[in-house]
Design a protein around this nucleic acid. Structure first.
Lengths: 149, 149
DNA sequence: CCACATTAAATGTATGTACATATATTTGCA
DNA sequence: TGCAAATATATGTACATACATTTAATGTGG
C-alpha cells in the first residue's frame, strides 16, 4: 500500500519528506510483524536479538559490553534484557573470573532449543523483503548506507 | 559507515538479511538524531508527531481515534501522549459535544508557537536523507513500498 | 423501551528506551 | 603504596509501547 494511504496523509512536502517517513514507517511495519511472530514464544524482539548474539558466541561467554556493541539499538539497556532472559532460564550469568567487574553471560541449552524452534518462523517473517529482486536489495542497501554517510 | 562495521557483524547470510537489518538500523539511526534535537525543547518524538497532526487539523479538533489513524506507529498509546502534552499546556482536551464518548483535542497557541520554533531544527535533522539525489529518493520510496506490498 | 453489542477513551501491567547516577573493581601513576 | 580515573555493570526515573481490561456513552434489534 502507498505510504500516503497507510497514514492518511495525502500530500508530502516533497519526495524527501516522503522518503523519510516511508523509511521509518516501513521499519516499524517490519518490526511489528516480527514481534507478532515472537509472541507465541513468549519472547520479545530485543530478547531474541540478545539470544542470537549469545548463540553466535557459544560456547564462549559474552559480556554486557559485547551485547551492547552488537545490538542494533546501541542505547538499549542490555542489563535488564539479560535479567528477563535469566528469569526464563534461557541464559546464565556468572561473575567473570579474570575481571570481576564483568559478567559472563552464556546461552543455555533451553535458549539454544528455543532459537532453533524459532528460526523458521523468524525467517518467514523476514520474507517481505524478498518481494525485492536481488538487484533491488543491493540498491536498497546502497541507498541506506548513503543516507548514514 | 557500512552496516557491517556499525554493528560489528562481519558477514550477513545474504544481501536480503543485510537489507533487513540495514533498514531497521537506519530508521533507528534517523530517529535517534531527531530525538536528540527534540531534547532541548523538552518534547519527545511521539509528542511532536501528535502536535503536528493537531496543527494539521487546526482550528478543527481531533479525536484520539484520528490521532491513532495518522500516527506512524499505529499501536502506540495516543491517550497517554495527549496526557503529557496537556500537562505542558500544548493541547486542550474537552468532551466532544456531539458524541460524549469522544474527546476533542486542540493544539493551543503555545503548541503552535513551539512547533514554529522547532520547524527549522527538525527539518535540519531530516537533512541526512538529502544525501540522496532526487532520483535516488524516488527509487528508495519505490523499494520501500514494494516491501510492504 | 430495554438488554446487549459496539464504540471511544482511559487505565493496568509488563517490557523496553533514554539518560543520569551509583556501586564495585581494576588500572595507572605520583 | 595509595588514591584518583577509568571500566563494567546495575539501578532509578520518566516516557513510550503492547496488550488486556475497564468505564462510559451510544446504537440497535426484539
Amino acid at each position: 500500500m502507498r505510504i500516503e494511504d497507510e497514514i492518511k496523509q495525502p500530500v508530502f512536502k516533497d519526495e524527501y519528506q516522503k522518503g523519510y517517513i516511508n523509511l521509518i514507517y516501513t521499519a516499524g511495519w517490519l518490526q511489528q510483524r516480527q514481534a507478532a511472530a515472537f509472541r507465541e514464544f513468549d519472547i520479545t524482539l530485543p530478547q531474541f536479538n540478545v539470544l542470537r548474539i549469545l548463540r553466535g558466541q557459544h560456547p564462549k561467554p559474552a559480556t554486557v559490553n559485547l551485547l551492547i556493541e552488537r545490538m542494533l539499538d546501541k542505547t538499549s539497556n542490555a542489563s535488564r534484557i539479560v535479567d528477563k532472559l535469566e528469569a526464563k532460564a534461557l541464559v546464565t550469568r556468572t561473575v567473570c573470573p579474570s575481571n570481576r567487574r564483568a559478567v559472563d553471560i552464556r546461552i543455555t541449552e533451553a535458549g539454544l532449543g528455543l532459537l532453533q524452534t524459532m528460526d523458521a518462523t523468524v525467517l518467514s517473517r523476514q520474507q517481505s523483503i524478498h518481494a525485492l529482486t536481488p538487484d533491488e536489495v543491493t540498491q536498497l542497501n546502497a541507498l541506506l548506507d548513503k543516507i548514514r554517510d
